[in-house]
């Protein structure tokens, strides 16, 4: 099952903490977005494998832009 993580806030990607193929747990920190002069950590919505990353560092993003896709282990 694929879960898309879309951005909950507008801003700039500060750091992408995972790479394609990484296995993450639910609530692991996967990236940092800078918004309103604040560093905002973004957490994985579910446990699984990262199958797609839609952004890179310094990208300017809007709400609902695709951040990454997680394939949930069944």
């Amino acid at each position: 099952m694929k879960i898309e993580l879309t951005s909950p806030i507008p801003g700039k990607i500060m750091k992408v903490l995972v790479s394609l193929g990484d296995v993450v747990n639910e609530d692991d920190e996967v990236m940092k977005i800078e918004s309103m002069k604040m560093e905002n950590p973004i957490y994985a919505p579910a446990a699984g494998t990262i199958t797609a990353i839609g952004v890179k560092e310094n990208d300017e993003i809007e709400v609902d832009d695709l951040l990454l896709v997680i394939e949930v282990a069944s």
Partner: peptide
């Protein structure tokens, strides 16, 4: 508020 919200529920992004 954003920080506090995320403290109680990591999936909650109250910033906007």
């Amino acid at each position: 508020v954003m920080k506090e919200g995320q403290k109680y529920n990591k999936k909650n992004y109250l910033l906007m």
